[in-house]
Computed example of a mutant assay.
Amino acid sequence: MNVMKPTRLLDLTANVFIAAVVAWIATRWAYSSFPPITVIAGASLYPVAALDAVLAFVIRTRVGDRRIGDGPKQLHPITAARAVALAKASAQVGSLAAGVWLGFLIWVLPQHGELRAAGSDTPGAIVGLIAGVLLVAAALWLEYCCRAPSEPPDEPAT
């Protein structure tokens, strides 16, 4: 039987580092062919982060109230499993996106004085970096909220 384990921060950190290196190399090599980076492009992950956060609070309430089961107003175990899958995927996507935006920023920020486009691309990249970090945070919160409640200790027989 396979047991699902919590997402490891080391894995997410590795994602950020690898994506940043690849993005820095790609930006250095092909920046002139990139389209302008808008704030809207950077903000594309905010709705997913918001969805993860809202879902986390809903699941946390149901788990806390021990409303887990198949009935109405209960959290179906399959729904919780799907939420964990969403959380794990969101954490991976968020860490990769944060890494890409970080690598882009590492190349663009020193170019402010030389390239006017670099200055106009920076706000969108900062918004994207923050969106990636927020998505990871929301995903980890959702994953945490989906943990099975601990069983109360057995009371000794009297």
Rank of each mutant, 00 (worst) to 15 (best):
A20W: 03
A125E: 02
W101H: 07
C145E: 13
L135W: 01
E155D: 11
P47W: 13
H112T: 04
E143Y: 06
S44G: 06
V63E: 04
T38E: 09
S44A: 14
V16K: 07
T158S: 14
F57P: 05
A30P: 01
L134R: 08
V16L: 13
M4Q: 07
S95D: 05
K73V: 10
D11M: 04
Q74P: 02
A19N: 05
D154H: 15
D70P: 08
G132C: 09
R62H: 06
D154G: 08
L105I: 01
R66L: 14
A49Y: 08
I40M: 15
L102H: 03
V136D: 01
R116D: 08
L10I: 10
V63I: 13
D154V: 13
P35G: 14
C146N: 09
Q74F: 08
S120N: 02
P123Y: 03
A19Y: 10
T158E: 14
A157V: 11
A131H: 06
A139T: 03
P72K: 11
G113N: 06
P152Q: 15
P35L: 11
A148T: 10
R82G: 06
V48H: 10
T61S: 15
W107F: 13
P35R: 15
V93M: 12
L115S: 07
P36L: 12
V127T: 11
P149I: 04
P153S: 09
Q74R: 09
P156V: 15
G71Y: 12
A20N: 01
P35V: 14
P152L: 14
M1G: 13
R8T: 03
L135H: 01
V100D: 00
W29L: 06
R116T: 00
V136F: 03
V22C: 06
C145D: 12
L45S: 06
A157I: 14
T13P: 00
P110L: 07
L134A: 09
E155S: 15
A85K: 12
A26Q: 13
V63R: 10
G69R: 14
V54F: 05
G71P: 03
A131C: 02
D154S: 15
I78W: 15
A30W: 15
G132P: 03
G103N: 01
W107Y: 13
T158N: 15
L105A: 02
K5E: 04
C146Y: 14
D121H: 05
L129K: 01
A87S: 13
W24I: 01
Q111H: 13
A137L: 12
V21N: 06
W107G: 00
V84S: 07
L109T: 02
E114Q: 12
D154I: 08
V16Y: 09
A83V: 07
T79H: 10
S90D: 08
A20T: 02
V48A: 13
R147D: 08
A85I: 00
I78A: 15
V48K: 10
D65Y: 14
T158W: 15
T27Q: 09
G128H: 01
G124A: 08
E155V: 13
H76P: 10
A117I: 02
S95L: 05
V16F: 10
P47T: 06
